[in-house]
Design a protein around this nucleic acid. Structure first.
Lengths: 348, 348
DNA sequence: CTGAAAGCGCTTACAG
DNA sequence: CTGAAAGCGCTTACAG
């Protein structure tokens, strides 16, 4: 029996690479991690030896010795909503590209889970090197605790946050959507606005509502309180909101929904009242949900996968260069109006 | 300055627990892991000391020494499809319950990623203790390599697989759906069948087609080749398939779609031909996609979250008791017919 | 039932 | 530019 047949050859360790390259494990370690102070010749020999042996550092050992886990937590309110599923997928790909494993943590609306995670980030930093927050609404206490921790952080869709963030300009997107309605000659427009706490890191609904109001204001139009209804950002929420609007008040000429899913529900409520868009009323949303093209919903689209990938990349970069002292940035990706079949010109 | 103020107290190690309890770290280690041969008194002292110190074992150290990672890979074709997002969410929750971190790995249809992952499971087992496969189609070579590895494996939605699997009885679900059409008096029924390789671990489409054929056979009806069209299991796939069916052949009285999303596409194609369900034709799907209730689609529902949670639990149990020699089992969860608005009795 | 010792595979100062 | 040594916090035989 050969003592080192391929079959029973164990995984190569840093010692094997050191032996083969004729250098110390210490030098090997430095060479492999791209640290300075290595002669080009040594660098080359190490790389060749590692290559030949198919060497891959043990993340457990590296972590124990160096305090790195090679893992990043992707935290989402839930994975089942389209936006998060899409962003998670793109983020996971970007992180994998950087050699990082993605540990998925879904909050599922259970506040105690969120609190357990963020009240004491030290325990989290035992498990991961960094945290990618996707639309996670942190209260001020959680925000502060996380910012004070040693974890690297990046996020998608948050506001006023002391780390890299990627999102869209929600105010501008809502303005654009409302502007489209106005341009079509609809002056009597309702808004289905989202609900959210006012002291959290997620301010999407507030910004979209602000954009709506600014668009009206541009035309010196007042926002009619009767034409604003708050709702959950779901099909059911939109359905209930639209039903309420139709039941208690007069019919608007157009409806701006803060998100596509609520717009779906609104369309359904309208249909049940014998009103079809765009004939009876024009409807527009924001997001470009996959179902929107199927249903013909006019909307303002946002690049979801891009946001997830971008934020993940920023996080991976910070992790790679911890000394990188560049200040955190807030990136706003472009959105665009997609005209489909639920909006049309008013007939006065 | 107190040398051990709360602020600068480092994380407690096994040594601290040993010191406080007056036992060796070895005994502490055994007690904490629930190994036998510990006196009740020692057990108690260890637990108290650990509790008082807020001790939590370092997973990196445990892994390095013991070869356990405390991580499980959740592998999916993509996270963005409803089914997978839902199953992932439930699986992650169940795994977290068992103290396991979920590492998400999305294949995104890139065969080379799948191959890299499963051709050499040893590298994967460097990163995780177990693998949860959600609807992942392995070819025979990949299947064998994974089965031969030291990784614990469980899956959702696979067939003929040498590890614990959870799914539904696809053949029965399709039979039930088709039976419903037949019971309504529709004898001329078409099928929108899914595409899939015939040598893989995912046999959903084949089983659903078999169920369809058996239902017809029960009535001594032949499956008309003109009434069967293969398609991707997506909205677009269903749309194209239905369009094709309508263009080249006669109009069926009813349509059984192998999945709800394809049924959505079929509905759209029908509408574009001026046909609305259930008036012109009855349409039924399988899945109970979230949009199905919105669209009023009659379907056979399957419990997606339950499947994910169940499989994850089975995996966690195997990981907890590696000596557990019980043979792998195939669990089939119940489905049920949900009548909505796209099917109705035939008028002869 | 319990403990001393070796070792998992790396990284980190520190010396040279 | 390079290496010897210590150590990260556990677990695993082995001995008692």
């Amino acid at each position: 029996m050969s003592p080192c047949s391929v079959a029973d050859r164990a995984r190569a360790t840093i010692h094997d690479v050191a032996t083969l390259s004729g250098l110390s494990i210490c030098t090997v370690s430095r060479a492999l991690r791209g640290l300075p102070n290595i002669s080009p010749a040594s660098q080359l020999r190490v790389e060749e030896a590692a290559e030949k042996l198919g060497y891959r550092a043990s993340s457990a050992a590296a972590r124990l010795a160096g305090g790195k886990t090679g893992h990043v937590a992707i935290v989402v309110p839930k994975t089942t909503a389209w936006f998060f599923a899409e962003a998670v997928e793109a983020a996971e790909e970007a992180l994998a590209h950087g050699g990082l494993d993605s540990v998925l943590m879904s909050l599922r609306g259970r506040e105690h889970v969120k609190d357990a995670l963020f009240r004491n980030p030290d325990e989290l930093s035992e498990r991961v090197d960094g945290v990618l927050l996707l639309g996670v609404n942190l209260d001020p206490v959680q925000l502060e605790a996380l910012a004070a921790s040693k974890l690297a952080v990046a996020s998608v869709g948050l506001s006023d946050v002391p780390w890299d963030n990627v999102g869209i300009d929600d105010e501008a997107a809502a303005w654009r959507a409302t502007r489209h309605l106005l341009d079509l000659g609809h002056w009597d427009v309702a808004i289905l606005a989202g609900n959210e706490p006012s002291d959290g890191t997620v301010r999407t609904a507030a910004h979209r509502q602000a954009g709506f109001e600014r668009a009206l204001d541009d035309e010196h139009l007042e926002t009619d309180p009767d034409m604003m209804v708050c709702t959950e950002s779901t099909i059911d929420g939109g359905y209930r909101a639209m039903t309420e609007l139709l039941a208690a008040r007069r019919r608007p000429a157009a409806v701006f929904s803060g998100c596509d899913e609520a717009a779906f529900g609104a369309l359904k409520a309208l249909r049940e009242h014998g009103i079809t868009a765009p004939k009876g009323v024009s409807v527009i949303g924001i997001d470009d949900h996959p179902m929107s093209s199927f249903l013909g919903l006019t909307t303002v689209s946002q690049p979801v996968a891009d946001q997830g990938a971008f934020a993940a990349t920023l996080l991976a970069e910070r992790l790679d260069n911890p000394e990188l002292g560049s200040p955190p940035q807030d990136h706003r990706l472009p959105t665009s109006l997609i005209e489909r079949k639920t909006t049309r010109r008013a007939r006065h």
